[in-house]
Amino acid sequence: MKKGYPRFFLLPGLILLIAIIIFPLLFTIRVTFSSWNVSQTGLNFIGGENWAEMARDTRYWGSMLRLFYLSFLTVAIQYALGFAIALFAWKGIAARRFFRVLWLIPMMTTPSLMAIIWRSIFTEDIGALNGILSRVGLNPVNWLTESGPANIAITIVEVWQWTPFMFLILLAGLLSLPKEPFMAAAIDGASAWKTFARVTFPMMAPISIGAIMIRLIDASKIFDSVFTMTRGGPGNATETPAAYIFQRSLQDFQIAYGSTLALMYLILAILTLTIIGKVFARLSKPRGI
């Protein structure tokens, strides 16, 4: 292959992306060593004070821990449910086309606007859910003011919004699977369950990994549902790093400290995702067809 061609393909995109993000990224790194806040504008130099403060910030690390289970839990549920409905929509149910459209709809809605609708569903006095509960004679649930239910409420919103993402990717994957392995399994007389475990699932592994990684990245930024429904409350029971960073950066206008928190978040996220990626790669390799 002639020289130069590979570059023609990669470089325009790479350069454009770098051109857009290089300044913000360098700026963010630089600003973490300054004290830019509401009354101190500009890039002075205060050394590692922000980083030291972050190390002591229990609220930040608490939100990180919370994020771990919130993101892994929601993505796991989304994956399981998304896979299940993708299998149904793949074959074997009537009116597939209708259900495919229906099940895609949540992803098409704007999360920040749907969060307002969800708030009007979960809100305890005039919300739809407690309205239904009271109609069937049950006691209202403190959806937003008790730590347990509040976390459940946020999980429900995230599952509703993003399961379709998994659904679509997995369904497209299923539709593109080659037919031969399934025929072979049928000839062997394998049960439906065995076919799934030995044929479908392993063949779906690469796609699953990609979808899970992208969802993990986006789920880790979980913000709209938290901010709109609970503001991180009760107390700090639902506060995620994105919500906490939002408060520091925009409400308190601590540009420098907020950037420090975000940069640490970026580093940890890249590390975690790399590890997860490696684990997935190892898990999926020796199997296959």
Partner: peptide
């Protein structure tokens, strides 16, 4: 200067007490 900062810090503490976390 920084009044929002002061107020959110105070609110966060009050919210914790109201939620019974402190």
């Amino acid at each position: 200067p920084g009044v929002s900062d002061y107020m959110t810090a105070m609110e966060n503490a009050v919210a914790k007490a109201l939620a019974g976390q402190a």
